[in-house]
C-alpha cells in the first residue's frame, strides 16, 4: 500500500464497539480499519498483515488482550507497531499489566469519538 492511509487493526468482541471505533476512525481521518472479533481472529490476521496501529480490548474470551499484547510485542513483524488498549474503569489492574507488556497508550470506555481520534493521531504522529 503506497497511499497515505494509515492501516489500523481493531480487536474487539463487541460488534457495536467495533463498529463505533471503525466508523469513528474511518470518518475522522486517513484510516483504513481491519476488524477482528476475537483474540484468535487477530492471531489469524496478524501474521499476514501490516498495520500502522493496533487497537485491542482487554477483556475478551479465550485469548485476552494482554496475551495479544505480548504476542504482538514478541513478534518480529509487529514488535514496534503502536498499540492502544481499550479498557474499562474498574479494571485498572489489567490495564496496567497491558502497559507493562508494552502497550503504548490506553483509552477508558466509554469515550468520545474525538478522544479516540486524538490519541490515535498522537500515536501515529499525525497533525
Amino acid at each position: 500500500m503506497s497511499d497515505s492511509r494509515q492501516r489500523v487493526l481493531v480487536v474487539e468482541d463487541s460488534a457495536t464497539m467495533r463498529g463505533f471505533v471503525t466508523a469513528t476512525l474511518e470518518s475522522g481521518g486517513p484510516f483504513t480499519v481491519t476488524q477482528a472479533e476475537s483474540g484468535f481472529h487477530a492471531l489469524k490476521i496478524l501474521p499476514r498483515g501490516r498495520y500502522d496501529l493496533i487497537i485491542t480490548d482487554i477483556n475478551m474470551p479465550d485469548i485476552n488482550g494482554l496475551e495479544l499484547v505480548r504476542f504482538i510485542r514478541d513478534s518480529e513483524q509487529h514488535k514496534t507497531t503502536p498499540l492502544l488498549i481499550i479498557s474499562t474503569d474498574g479494571r485498572e489492574a489489567d490495564r496496567d499489566r497491558g502497559l507493562k507488556l508494552g502497550a503504548n497508550g490506553y483509552l477508558t470506555k466509554p469515550f468520545e469519538p474525538q478522544q479516540l481520534l486524538d490519541i490515535v493521531r498522537g500515536l501515529l504522529h499525525l497533525g
Binding site: R50, T80, I119
Partner: peptide
Amino acid sequence: AMNASAVVGKAATAGVAGA
C-alpha cells in the same frame, strides 16, 4: 487528552518507523 497523546506518541515513534 491532547497532552497525553503527545507524550504517548513519543514513545511510539520508533514503532511507526519500524512498521
